[in-house]
């Protein structure tokens, strides 16, 4: 059968949003290497529960890397030591017997810690609400094949649209910047013909909201791109900048009303 290991976990525990919080050490015993990281936490939580203590709260849902709910900075890396996956897709075979694992929540002013490892990411929703949509109502739209979209453009838009909104970009960025997240949505609509109508207003509105939420500024380190579980590219940020500056310097005066 597969290998088993014993691990030491240093986990951030924080009772609620107002609590100061501290690290607490737990032992994870007899962990199988084909467990997922979250299953390992489940096992630890079952132990904690049996002792009558409060289990570690962490966000998770689909456990197949698509809902974007799971988070965790594991040994200094968002979503753990592997690239291109979420925490729920991380398996214990990436660790070794006797290892100490430090588990922390996403850290950003715009992502306050709610409890233990769970943070409040509604700032991301508010950015989307500022302009991450096409202004159309249900019904009354043209046939889906009315506007052909070159495959390469559609594919590029898809690549941007695969963002799962987990926040790893913010967590990885030394400046806690959300620009990769914001730019992915701006890019998707900037590329597609359906997004053209409010293209420039969208870029401005979403950037404004991003600033208002208190995210940091991009310094182009590329950490977000490296840690993004969906491989969202830095070119999106360049595109966002282009959209924003075009809006500000060249488009605003087009309308004199």
């Amino acid at each position: 059968m597969s290998g088993h290991m014993n691990l030491t976990l240093k986990v951030w525990r924080q009772k609620n949003i107002n609590d100061k919080g501290q690290f607490v050490t737990y032992q994870a015993k007899d962990i199988a290497d084909d467990m997922s990281f979250l299953e390992m936490l489940d096992v630890v939580n079952e132990d904690i529960t049996r002792k009558g203590e409060d289990p570690i709260y962490f966000d998770h849902d689909c456990r197949e890397g698509i809902c974007g709910m799971c988070s965790l900075v594991i040994n200094g890396r968002p979503h753990g030591p592997k690239y291109g996956i979420t925490t729920c897709q991380l398996h214990m075979r990436s660790f070794h017997d006797g290892q100490t694992i430090v588990i922390e929540p996403w850290r950003a002013a715009a992502f306050p810690v709610l409890k233990d490892l769970a943070v409040d990411r509604t700032s991301f929703d508010r950015i989307q609400q500022a302009g991450g949509y096409v202004n159309i109502n249900t019904g009354g739209v043209p046939d889906a094949n009315t506007i052909p979209i070159p495959k390469r453009v559609a594919d590029e838009a898809f690549e941007s649209a695969t963002c799962i909104g987990c926040g790893a970009c913010v967590a990885a960025c030394k400046n806690a910047s959300a620009m990769l997240f914001v730019s992915a949505k701006i890019s998707q609509f900037a590329l597609l013909p359906q997004g053209q109508t409010e293209r420039y207003e969208r870029a401005q509105a979403m950037v404004d909201q991003m600033d208002a939420e208190g995210f940091g500024n991009c310094t182009n380190t590329g950490a977000c791109e490296a840690e993004c579980p969906k491989g969202i590219k830095l070119t999106n940020i360049a595109r966002m900048n282009r959209e924003y500056f075009t809006a500000k310097f060249f488009r605003q005066e087009d309308i004199h009303a």
Partner: peptide
């Protein structure tokens, strides 16, 4: 940028995802 992360990480493995000079 500092204000955007008031509480820092206990461990931060920057070298895994970015170049030293960029940070």
């Amino acid at each position: 940028n500092k204000a955007a992360r008031p509480v820092g990480y206990n461990q931060y493995d920057g070298k895994a995802n970015s170049a030293w000079n960029s940070r």
